Computed example of a mutant assay.
Amino acid sequence: MGRPLAAASPLPGLAARRPDLVGLALLLCTVLGWGLSWPVNKLLLGLWPPLSLRGMNGTLGGMALMLLALARGEALGVPLGQWGRLLLIAVLNVTCWIGFTTYSMLWLTAGEAAIAAYTMPLWTVLLAWPLLGERPTVRRVAGLATGLAGVAVLVGGGPSLDLSRLPGVVMSMLAAVTFALGTVVTKRAPLTLPPVAGAAWQVLLGALPLALAGLLLERADPAAMPAHGWALVAVVAAYPLGVCYLSWFAALRRLPAGLAATGTLLTPVIGVLGGTLLLGEPLGLRQGLALLLTVAGVLLALRG
Rank of each mutant, 00 (worst) to 15 (best):
G157H: 08
P167W: 09
G156F: 15
S160M: 13
T146E: 09
L148F: 15
V170W: 05
A176D: 04
T178D: 00
V170L: 15
L174P: 04
V151M: 07
A152M: 15
F179Q: 02
S160Q: 15
L174V: 12
S164T: 14
G158F: 08
G147S: 12
L148A: 13
L148E: 14
L161H: 06
L154D: 02
G156P: 00
T146C: 15
L144M: 15
S160D: 15
G147E: 04
V151W: 05
V169H: 01
T146R: 07
D162Q: 08
P159D: 05
G158A: 10
L148C: 14
P159Q: 08
F179Y: 12
A175R: 01
L161V: 14
L154Y: 03
L166T: 07
F179S: 01
V177D: 00
G158T: 10
S160P: 01
L163R: 07
R165L: 12
G158E: 06
V169Y: 01
V155D: 04
D162I: 07
M171Y: 11
V155P: 01
M171F: 14
R165V: 13
S164F: 05
G150C: 06
L166A: 12
A149E: 06
T146P: 11
T178A: 07
V177K: 00
L144W: 14
S164G: 12
L166G: 05
T178C: 11
V170H: 04
P159Y: 05
G157N: 10
V153N: 09
L166K: 03
L163C: 01
P159C: 00
F179N: 02
M171P: 00
G156A: 15
G168H: 01
L148P: 14
A145E: 04
M171T: 00
G157I: 12
L163Y: 04
D162Y: 00
V177Y: 03
G157C: 13
T146Q: 11
G157F: 09
A175W: 01
S172C: 07
M171Q: 07
F179G: 00
V153T: 13
S172H: 03
V169M: 03
L166W: 08
G156T: 14
M171G: 01
A152H: 11
V153S: 10
T178N: 03
A145M: 14
A149M: 13
A175L: 03
P167E: 13
F179L: 07
G158R: 10
S172R: 04
T178L: 05
G147W: 03
L154K: 01
P167A: 09
V155H: 04
P159A: 06
V151R: 03
